[in-house]
Design a binder for these strands. Structure first.
Lengths: 138, 138
DNA sequence: ATCTATGCAAAGACTTTGCATCCCC
DNA sequence: GGGGATGCAAAGTCTTTGCATAGAT
């Protein structure tokens, strides 16, 4: 089920802003902030309001079509959400981001932490930071 | 070296706001937001401005005396920073937080991710979420 | 005495919301 | 045609900053 179907399935509509944002995020490897999305689309000649960007991002995230990552500077960026549980590695230099699947190592660690702390662990947040191949060369 | 020495070592001064904030954060197990810190101290009869809370938190974090965690609701909270590399488990119900030391499992995972993605990984962010023993019973 | 830290208030940055209009189905 | 979606502008929320004053060493 692609994103358009997922939206229609909720009785919602495919609008120009939604199309523009999904298209933009699908073709970039860098997570983008609301302001960056707004600017990008304006530069491409599109027109949409910042308010729509916020509304659309919230909607798409609720539909699980997008996910948020914490950029190296602490700000939030949005990316298209690939299916399945996964995490991201982000480049501290260019923000380019790649994901990798959830891993059993983490389950083992979680189990150990439960034992150690008495907590019942339900989920987690994990991101790696470093340099992407391109930035390492420069 | 305790926090007062660490501040003096930078040629800075021990002031009432700094004392109040460090004392408050030292005795709570829940990471507090700037607003919460401000409110707490006012309730205790202390007086300090919100601006000072922000300035002080930034300073204390720069000195590595505090660390930030992402609360269950996405907001940031501050805690005293225990020495050594560590992570936190947070309760989704009461926010109570406990830390645990850095772990080799993560190093192994990082190595695998480097191989998989071509990135050079320098650091990471990891937090577990769940229920603390007290909230599980309720 | 000196130089840092604080309070206050204003300014900034970011995000949300009300409402009239537009447009997707 | 009907109801969801958008744009615009105003209102909120959170955070930072300038400046005069208070305070630590």
């Amino acid at each position: 089920m692609d994103w358009q179907e997922r939206i229609r399935a909720k009785g919602l509509r495919i609008s120009e802003p939604r199309r523009q944002i999904m298209t933009l995020l699908a073709e970039t490897t860098v997570p983008l902030s609301p302001a960056a999305i707004h600017t990008c689309i304006q530069k491409q000649g599109g027109s949409l309001s910042l308010a729509s960007v916020y509304r659309t991002l919230r909607l798409l995230e609720d539909l699980d079509l997008l996910c948020q990552v914490y950029l190296a500077d602490g700000n939030l960026g949005f990316m298209v959400h690939d299916s399945g549980h996964h995490h991201h590695v982000l480049c501290r230099c260019c923000n380019r981001s790649v994901d990798f699947p959830g891993n059993d190592d983490l389950l083992a660690l979680a189990a150990r932490v439960e034992e150690l702390t008495g907590y019942t662990i339900s989920d987690h947040m994990l991101q790696f930071y470093g340099l992407c191949p391109q930035c390492r060369q420069a």
